[in-house]
Simulated scan of single mutants.
Amino acid sequence: MTAPTLPSHTVAESRAGVRPGGPALEAVRARRSWSKVTDEAPSHEELLELVSAAGRVADHSSLRPWRLIELRGTDRERLGRAIAKAEGEKGASSKPLRAPLLLAVVASYRKSGKVPRWEQEAVASGVAHTLSLLLDEAGWGVIWRTGHYTRSRAVAKAHGLEKNEELLGWLYVGGKPARERAGHRKPLDAGTVLSRMPQPKKSSKA
């Protein structure tokens, strides 16, 4: 007698001992970008725990080719002046003042014969995205902002970047407005982006 086929979620449960649709899945499903936030922000101590967890992303050869920089208070004003300089404008840009806390995401490239530059940048990006999920789950509003000026000399200098480093943007972090309506994103049809490796064509020769 043939054994009945178990549903995929039951098989997953028996293998991993956990139920499907756990905290990680729900955190990803619930994530959204918050363009407007309140003046509240996580403390340095709160960040340490979340950054430590975000650092668990896949990292070929454990190079740790990334670092983060906290910008609070007048740090944001200094960044505003650097952005204005990069844009060829006078004064200071108000963009960095949109959130009480900015976390600069820095790709800090290491010399390696096995891990190319693009892969190291992917690690830094992975840390930033994972951290944004953790911050969102902890109740903070987050949006990852970039711009062509991220690679400008003035902005790099303001952050104290070394020659082997590049800025990938900032996580703008603050409190979630109480009356802000939840954003809506069109569901992804996973079948359009998940496929199998193409099979080799059969030869027409006899």
Results as ranks from 00 to 15, higher is better:
residue 61 S to L: 03
residue 135 L to C: 08
residue 114 K to G: 07
residue 79 L to D: 02
residue 144 W to T: 10
residue 128 A to Q: 00
residue 110 R to I: 05
residue 80 G to E: 12
residue 152 S to R: 07
residue 60 H to R: 07
residue 43 S to A: 12
residue 130 T to N: 14
residue 130 T to R: 02
residue 143 I to Y: 08
residue 95 K to E: 15
residue 138 A to I: 07
residue 74 T to H: 11
residue 38 T to L: 10
residue 64 R to M: 00
residue 154 A to F: 10
residue 68 L to C: 04
residue 39 D to G: 11
residue 149 Y to M: 09
residue 84 A to N: 13
residue 74 T to F: 02
residue 127 V to E: 00
residue 131 L to H: 07
residue 144 W to R: 13
residue 107 A to H: 15
residue 157 K to W: 04
residue 18 V to P: 04
residue 123 V to H: 08
residue 95 K to I: 14
residue 56 R to W: 07
residue 51 V to R: 03
residue 95 K to L: 15
residue 31 R to N: 03
residue 115 V to N: 01
residue 75 D to H: 03
residue 157 K to A: 14
residue 63 L to P: 02
residue 153 R to D: 02
residue 80 G to W: 08
residue 86 A to P: 11
residue 68 L to A: 09
residue 89 E to P: 00
residue 135 L to Y: 07
residue 147 G to R: 14
residue 44 H to A: 15
residue 138 A to E: 12
residue 94 S to Q: 14
residue 87 E to G: 07
residue 105 V to E: 10
residue 127 V to W: 01
residue 93 S to H: 01
residue 95 K to A: 15
residue 153 R to L: 03
residue 52 S to V: 04
residue 63 L to G: 04
residue 44 H to T: 13
residue 26 E to I: 06
residue 133 L to A: 03
residue 140 W to F: 10
residue 50 L to P: 04
residue 48 L to E: 12
residue 147 G to A: 13
residue 25 L to P: 05
residue 80 G to K: 08
residue 127 V to F: 04
residue 139 G to V: 04
residue 78 R to C: 05
residue 22 G to L: 08
residue 79 L to Q: 05
residue 78 R to T: 13
residue 101 L to Y: 09
residue 101 L to M: 11
residue 21 G to E: 06
residue 49 E to T: 14
residue 61 S to Q: 07
residue 96 P to W: 15
residue 98 R to C: 09
residue 103 L to T: 14
residue 107 A to P: 14
residue 158 A to H: 05
residue 99 A to C: 14
residue 106 V to I: 15
residue 142 V to F: 03
residue 33 S to L: 06
residue 105 V to R: 11
residue 112 S to A: 05
residue 18 V to E: 15
residue 105 V to P: 11
residue 57 V to H: 06
residue 73 G to H: 11
residue 103 L to A: 05
residue 20 P to I: 11
residue 131 L to E: 05
residue 50 L to Q: 01
residue 85 K to V: 01
residue 136 D to K: 03
residue 42 P to F: 03
residue 140 W to H: 10
residue 98 R to V: 05
residue 106 V to T: 00
residue 120 Q to D: 08
residue 76 R to N: 02
residue 43 S to L: 04
residue 111 K to R: 11
residue 102 L to I: 05
residue 141 G to L: 02
residue 77 E to A: 03
residue 58 A to K: 02
residue 132 S to H: 09
residue 131 L to G: 06
residue 149 Y to T: 12
residue 57 V to G: 01
residue 43 S to H: 10
residue 31 R to K: 03
residue 73 G to T: 12
residue 39 D to A: 13
residue 141 G to P: 01
residue 73 G to Q: 12
residue 43 S to K: 10
residue 60 H to K: 05
residue 109 Y to F: 13
residue 120 Q to G: 09
residue 66 W to Y: 08
residue 90 K to Q: 15
residue 143 I to L: 15
residue 157 K to D: 11
residue 144 W to L: 12
residue 100 P to S: 01
residue 89 E to K: 15
residue 124 A to F: 09
